[in-house]
Amino acid sequence: MIIPLSSLKIGMNGIIIRLEFEESIKERFIAMGIIPGKKITYVHESPFGDPMVFKIEDNKIMIRKNEAEKIFVDVTEEILSLEESTPGVYKIFLIKGGLFFRKELENLNIVNGSIINVINNHFGKVSLKVNNKTITFGKGRSKKILVKKLNK
């Protein structure tokens, strides 16, 4: 699936496909190492969500969001927050948030890698099934859970 670089979630990676800039700017990015065919990983988030730092091989490059929107990458797996999910089967990719939140989820048998089944998503209020138990998360909490869609 091809998405703009700006839609990557932290820790996600993709293969650079194309740069949609005018020629002169494009050449500059290429010279900095953003070359189609290379693997690129989103490694650091700034305090305000913008700009973003990406890693290509041994290289860390900071790119502002509006430029990252014009660089397209191919991602093998799509990672989204639970808040954006539609009904279907997902695997937990990452749980953001503090120790207590993760402990709480652990008690519900939700850890990194566990499989969940999203039943419905009502404007971010998500109901899901895990181990035959139905749980509902509010918008704030479902934002903190990143999931990977499983194709089944």
């Binding site: 700017i25 500059r28 990015f29 290289n59 860390k60 490059i61």
Partner: peptide, 9 residues
């Protein structure tokens, strides 16, 4: 206008 893109060395 040049895009502000820098490297973190």
């Amino acid at each position: 206008e040049v895009p502000f893109t820098i490297e973190l060395p």
